[in-house]
Design a protein around this nucleic acid. Structure first.
Length: 597
RNA sequence: GGCUCCAUAGUUCAAUGGAUAGAACAGAUGUUUCCUAAACAUCAAAUCCAAGUUCGAUUCUUGGUGGAGCUACCA
């Protein structure tokens, strides 16, 4: 049931008859009527005055008259300046309502497994420190995108590429060897990722101290950084690792295992999961063959020191290193390799990388390189570039301890959920495990909604004070609305107020009911729009507006106290539809909604 | 220096080129013998500057100003 398209068809006909003009669908600007005016849809007639040769009001009036006489959907119209406001016949809304209520999958498309999958990479953490707020945005965006794409009928493979090797990990290993005294997560009572992160920070502190000492002795800072003994030792470990030294590998495996256990806790708590996990230790050698291929094709070139480069200056970019003089690969080499591997393994319809906007340049280069190599699938690569998370104090820097740790943040949100609930006296007599589940639901709802409601492309400010707010434009506000509706529905059942009779909607809708109905009508389109724009924020803004409109309705009209059984039944069913849309929308954001709170 | 992105109430966020620029928080005020007041209602408050395109610009173009990111033989 697509009111807009049907209306546009009628409008095109009207323009043909009245003005002998045939316009494209896209040339007709039909929008939802703003709240303060009467009507369902508004036609902007300014563009038509060029051929109507009449003032906008007159043009709108003529079209309105024509539609009233010839378009069966149109009940009435009014004209304000160049805006033609059209009201639909109420039976259209009634029949939409009935079909929406009877369709459990309303708004969602079933996944079409015959389509090629979309490979969605996100999270992709380093294993030298715990997850922080930046990862949280990444993880939440990634898992929400997967759900939104699913709801649009697209098969998705969620992929995590864990960066489990490299100099940064060797730093943690060295520090643990040197100062750890055999400490383990169990003995320290720390999550594994936090323990490893602790040694990473420790390394940095000792390194800084060493460098300062060298500088004090008159060595310049640059060579001090390069020649510091700690740095050298870390590099030695990296070389041993690459030479498959058994002791080094054993240490590496043990510490990485600690980290994975810690990450899994955090992922589970956040409700994030993957279909496939790849490790860079298995993929970091990929890509060298592609470089050879590029050399053969003459699109890359070798410098006298044997390093391999691509010249992208004609594309407005720089020269880019692809292989070092000693033949070892760099980040880009690996990424070419993993992209190729991924393409061959999944033959995907597209490959989406959820990676921060600080890497825009990197992905531009990646696409250009693949294009130059005549890999015709370069166009399938999409960098989902999201903005950075800023704190009131400025940028987060893990080494300077100005990060917001993901686990700490979740715990903090939990504590706020608990104390707020207790302050409001709503804890009641529920079991403690039930309450604990509720607090997690609220804590995660608040955090996820706070982060996902912002346009992903934009940098966002994370103010801890505001993120724990449970009033206004927040997750708990929407969760509360859902709980309220559920309570209403169960009371109706208790008091035998819900009727099993077929819905009959013959009375004139209250304007608030009609507004609410219009919101529910928008749900399927909102899901599509969010899928096309790859934007959870579209869903978040929609569901907030819906919840707000429902609360308005709840305040203004009575449901259970309504005496007319058919009106009461309509309002209950409408409430139930709103609850199910809230639940579905929030599920796209990875947020659960409680039955009571 | 070069390239890219951003700029909207005090603050954090909205607005396919369309009507009087929406919300929330913070501020002021009001609503519970009545379906959950984690709610609702009222008031006050904003498009960085200057040109241009257009019937119409927060939105598009150009130039300023201010902020962020990138510009590694790190990953």
């Amino acid at each position: 049931m697509d009111f807009e398209n049907l209306l546009i068809t009628d409008i095109r006909l009207a323009l043909q008859v009245l003005f002998k003009q045939t316009l494209d669908y896209a040339a007709i600007s039909l929008q939802k009527t703003r709240k303060e005016f009467e009507g369902d849809y508004t036609l902007v007639v300014f563009p038509f005055t060029s051929f109507s040769k009449m003032p906008p009001e007159k043009t709108a009036e003529l079209i309105g008259q024509y539609l009233l006489a010839n378009a069966p959907m149109v009940e009435k119209f009014n004209v304000i300046k160049g805006f033609l406001n059209l009201s639909l016949k109420q039976h259209l809304w009634s029949s939409f309502f009935k079909s929406a209520v009877s369709e459990p999958g309303f708004g969602f498309c079933p996944v079409d497994e015959s389509l090629d999958a979309i490979v969605l990479e996100y999270s992709s953490p380093n294993t030298n420190k715990p997850l922080h707020l930046g990862h949280v945005r990444n993880n939440l965006l990634g898992s929400s995108l997967a759900k939104i794409l699913h709801a649009n009928g697209k098969p998705v493979v969620q992929v995590n590429l864990v960066n489990d090797r490299g100099i940064h990990i060797c730093k943690s290993m060295l520090a643990w060897q040197t100062w750890g005294n055999g400490e383990t997560p169990e003995s320290a009572g720390l999550k594994g990722d936090h323990l490893v992160g602790k040694y990473y920070v420790l390394f940095d502190q000792y390194l800084k101290a060493e460098i300062e000492e060298m500088v004090a002795q008159g060595i310049d800072r640059e060579s001090a950084t390069k020649n510091a003994s700690l740095m050298k030792k870390a590099q030695e470990i990296l070389m041993k690792w690459e030479a498959h030294d058994p002791d080094t590998l054993a240490l590496w495996r043990m510490m990485n295992q600690w980290v994975y256990t810690g990450f899994n806790d955090t992922y589970n708590r956040m409700g994030v999961s993957f279909d496939e996990t790849f490790f860079e230790s298995n993929t970091y050698l990929l890509g060298k063959e592609i470089i050879e291929e590029g050399l053969d094709k003459g699109v890359f070139f070798r410098k006298p020191d044997h390093s391999v480069w691509a010249d992208l200056t004609s594309d407005g970019l720089d020269e880019k290193l692809l292989l070092r003089g000693d033949g070892t690969s760099v980040y880009m080499t690996q990424d070419l390799g993993t992209a190729n591997q991924r393409y061959e393994k999944f033959s995907p319809s597209s490959m989406i990388y959820v990676v921060g906007n600080e890497q825009n340049y990197h992905f531009d280069v990646l696409r250009f390189l693949l294009k130059k190599l005549e890999k015709d699938w370069w166009e399938k690569i999409h960098h989902f570039s999201y903005g950075m998370v800023e704190l009131p104090e400025g940028k987060m820097k893990s080494r300077e301890g100005t990060v917001v740790d993901a686990d700490d943040l979740l715990q903090e949100m939990y504590n706020v959920a608990k104390s707020t609930t207790e302050d409001l006296g709503k804890a009641g007599e529920a079991q403690s495990d039930e309450l604990s589940k509720l607090y997690w639901t609220l804590a995660l709802g608040a955090l996820k909604f706070f982060i996902l409601k912002v346009d992903p492309k934009k940098n966002m400010m994370f103010n801890p004070q505001e993120s724990i707010d449970f009033n206004g434009n927040t997750g708990p506000f929407i969760q509360y609305t859902h709980a309220r509706i559920k309570s209403l529905l169960s009371k109706a059942t208790e008091r035998n107020l819900d009727s099993n009779e077929e819905l009959s909607i013959e009375y004139q809708f209250h304007s608030i009911e009609l507004n609410l109905l219009r919101f529910t009508y928008d749900f399927p389109n909102t899901v599509k729009q969010a899928g096309n724009a790859l934007s959870p924020a579209v869903i978040a803004n929609y569901v907030y507006d819906l919840a707000k409109e429902y609360n308005h309705f709840y305040q203004e009209v009575s449901v259970l106290r309504e005496e007319d059984a058919s009106i009461r039944s309509f309002r209950l069913t409408l409430s139930s539809l709103v609850a199910s849309i809230i639940k579905k929308s929030m599920s796209l954001l990875g947020v659960e909604v409680p039955e009571r709170m």
